[in-house]
Design a protein around this nucleic acid. Structure first.
Lengths: 262, 262
DNA sequence: TGTAAATACTTGTATTAACAAGTAGTGAAT
DNA sequence: ATTCACTACTTGTTAATACAAGTATTTACA
């Protein structure tokens, strides 16, 4: 049953983990007892316990003295503390995402942007302006700058349907590994305000994003302006019981955009 | 040496944890070996290992086969994915935090706020307006609403020196267990703009916060307006190697305010 | 001098053993 | 019918022991 060279407790925890992740052991289902595993794998009870503790540390199971070990429900943790895609955000809010390309052309840009993209100062980049909508209503306005190398790849695609992320990852195997975000507030310019259907000078939530692929290589820089009457970001921070941080800091548990449908 | 009623491995891990947190064992310092602990506490090696594994799971130590156990450097992790206190934020930015109380008086407020604080609609609350400064320059403006029950507790304290959090937790043993945040953008009102030294209508980053103690009991509701020319929030999301989320979502790794000192 | 073997020390893996303690059900006594 | 003791099963704690494997130093040899 068990191979050599790999610790038995590791093989056992892997075996059980697979069963949990594949759904063979369902949520709150009682696992076989330590003695049952002991006989099944023909190891000592200590070895089984070592395997079960690994899974407990991974938050995959919980154990009750006198009762047994059970599969833990981690669904609520799955989405926590993740930054998401616009289309995905909309889907979760129960709205249909759509986009309109307002502008798409090679331009020369400020040195600030070329330096972010790690390009020579005089290089031309592709600028892509899009209006993002939820159920047909304007929600955000994107301005994206891509190096021409990546820009040419997305040319010709229907950006109403596909995201830049999706095109690069699925069709060209260029994965986005990292994102650096900045959250700011800015007064709407005439250009952005017109497209979003608001007044010039209205406060907008601005999310700056630099997306990077392997080796810290920049793929695009994006400014996204959110209408704050439609959307806010919600965060929840919670202190674990027993944790005394003393300085009032709490680990972040949730980070999700919330949309106001009215 | 060891008490009864509490598992020995727990007492041992607590003892070592204290030594680490108090700084008796410094970063990357080698801990006594398992056999040394075994003799020191007069327990079996298994018990010592059980204690050390707890600390390893807590990310307080790392162990190298053939070398020993060492105190882990967790300074870089401390700030990750945590929401912090204003004073703490300033300290990290190398600026000195100070506050001015602009207004502090019992008021009647909108039903929205009383409902957030789980109070009857006609209840009076304490409103506290403060200007928060870094190195003497205005950075944020706080408006805080507290139920009178908590409000009376902070009356008389020097809010220039102490935080609401600190007073309630340290002097009254009321811990803040949870915080719900909302990130928005808003145009500055005349009142806020004057104190922050900016123009009316300028876009401000608004952090709404509802702080809760045990049992989801609200302690205060706060609106904090940040001058965005001074400060932005920075986030970093990173995909773990080997993780294929397929939808472009990435777990949040960092969340920290960044201040612009100029 | 330089390399390789021996060593002493570390943590890692694994067994067997025993008892403690919590849970749930059974059955007898009230 | 209710309570209580008993029992069977579970996980929790702890010990004593053995060997494997990684690291670093020392020693012996070429």
């Amino acid at each position: 049953m068990l191979k050599e060279g790999i610790p038995r407790h590791e093989q056992i925890s892997n075996w059980i983990r697979d069963k949990i992740e594949s759904g063979d052991y369902k949520i709150d289902e009682k696992l076989p007892s330590e003695n049952e595993f002991k006989e099944q794998f023909e190891v000592s009870r200590v070895t089984v316990r070592r395997a079960l503790q690994t899974l407990q540390n991974e938050d995959l199971i919980y154990r009750c003295q006198g009762l047994g070990s059970f599969v833990k429900d981690n669904r609520s943790h799955q989405t926590l503390v993740q930054l998401t895609d616009f289309v995905e955000d909309m889907r979760r809010a129960g709205m249909e995402a759509s986009s309109t390309v307002i502008r798409m052309e090679p331009t020369n840009v400020s040195e600030y942007i070329t330096s972010l993209l790690k390009l020579d100062a005089d290089k031309t980049v592709l600028r892509l302006d899009r209006l993002r909508m939820g159920d047909g209503k304007p929600i955000a306005f994107d301005i994206t700058w891509l190096p021409m190398f990546y820009g040419q790849l997305i040319e010709g695609y229907d950006l109403t349907k596909k995201t830049i992320y999706g095109i690069l990852e699925q069709d060209y195997d260029i994965p986005i590994e990292k994102g650096c975000y900045r959250i700011e507030a800015e007064n709407a310019t005439d250009y952005v305000a017109t497209h979003l259907g608001i007044n010039e000078g209205d406060a907008l939530l601005l999310i700056d994003r630099l997306s990077l692929t392997v080796g810290e290589k920049p793929i695009y820089y994006q400014k996204r302006y959110y209408r704050t009457d439609c959307m806010v970001y919600e965060l929840m921070a919670e202190r674990k019981p027993g944790t005394k941080t003393s300085d009032g800091n709490m680990p972040l548990k949730e980070f999700a955009p919330v949309f106001n449908k009215e």
